[in-house]
Design a protein around this nucleic acid. Structure first.
Lengths: 195, 195
DNA sequence: CGAATGACAGATTTCAATATCTGTCATTCG
DNA sequence: CGAATGACAGATATTGAAATCTGTCATTCG
């Protein structure tokens, strides 16, 4: 964190993540971030108008990491839609479960941030739902799925699997039934989608 | 609340509900309950060993009211299983939404209690899932549903509709999309269940 | 001149003293 | 005699004064 480098939004975001990791969401202050960077807090306010804006930017970053990883699966037109949807849902569940399990405190921290940044989360969910819509639409085009409206079906699939990606349920992802429940949910939903 | 009546568990539960309604979950104390009844708090402890036990009893009562209302629909063998399942899910959603909308503070209070009483909630969920299992099993018997294991399918249906009954989502039940989302979810799940 | 500072007002958080609560039990009451 | 009480120890919650934080802006620095 050499104070010699120019102060950029990017460096501030990195420092903010570090402070959040160390202090948690409640105790992470703008002053802490400035301290970590060796600058005055006034300088941070030059790049982010408010603390909320800074938190939102950090949250967006974190959410985007998930979206990008899944986009590859959703966009892979070479594989059949049913497998792709199964893989996509499994990848989402696995990624969330891993994050929650590996570093529960950091996951909890970001869950709190997500709760604050309703707008950013809504956008993220829209992105993910859009990915599912693409898979469903491909399936309809290929004649393997039935759907009046792929966007509506995708939304239903995404919401119905909420238990396996919504942080509110993170506590249940460790329990033994989780995998069986997930398999049952996916099987039922895919039966519902099949032409 | 005449102090002349004998002190029964039932009277204590009624007083506790009243105190919870007035003070909310954080500020409702055993001393408050005793005060409301015009007795010493020691007397309350004669009927409930701990404050947690008292809260659990109140929570169970509240949860049971929901279960009973739905049991009638689940058990009505005269109607076809698909309609029954649709009605059951709609009744659950409507009941929850009405409670949350009519008296948001009381609903929030009971949601907090439910969060404390994980055991009681688990039992309640088992009861509800059992009701769905009955409907699914009837459907399989009648040849209108397909399911390897009605209990597993019922669990999947119940969990997949969590967004429409889990208090964690109460904030979204008012939003305009809720009804369309619910309809889409139920349609997709029923397509998945049909033989 | 634009980037960074730090003093400032008002809002929020922390902390320690104080008050209240939980759960027990020897005693009282009817 | 069984039901109810209230004093008590330890745990928890409330309170208000002091410390810290947020966001602004006139001033300094390079």
């Amino acid at each position: 964190m050499a104070a010699t480098e120019t102060l950029t939004a990017e460096r501030i975001l990195q420092a903010t993540e570090e402070v959040l990791r160390r202090h948690g969401p409640a105790k992470a202050t703008v002053v802490d971030v400035a301290r970590a960077l060796g600058v005055s807090h006034g300088s941070v306010y030059r790049h982010f108008r408010t603390k909320a804006a800074l938190r939102e930017a950090v949250t967006k970053r974190w959410l985007d990491r998930t979206s990008e990883a899944l986009d590859g699966i959703a966009g892979d037109g070479s594989r059949d839609p049913e497998t792709r949807l199964r893989d996509w849902l499994a990848a989402l569940f696995t990624a969330k479960r891993r994050k929650a399990g590996d570093d529960p405190e950091l996951f909890a921290t970001y869950s709190v941030l997500a709760g604050e940044q309703v707008g950013a989360v809504a956008e993220h969910i829209d992105e993910l739902t859009e990915q599912v819509t693409r898979i469903v639409a491909d399936g309809v085009a290929a004649g393997v799925f039935h759907s009046e409206d792929p966007a509506v079906s995708a939304r239903a699939v995404f919401q119905a699997t909420g238990r396996f990606h919504d942080p509110a349920y993170a506590g249940e992802w460790d329990r033994g039934e989780a995998d069986a429940d997930f398999a049952a949910a996916v099987d039922l939903l895919l039966r519902g989608l099949r032409a």
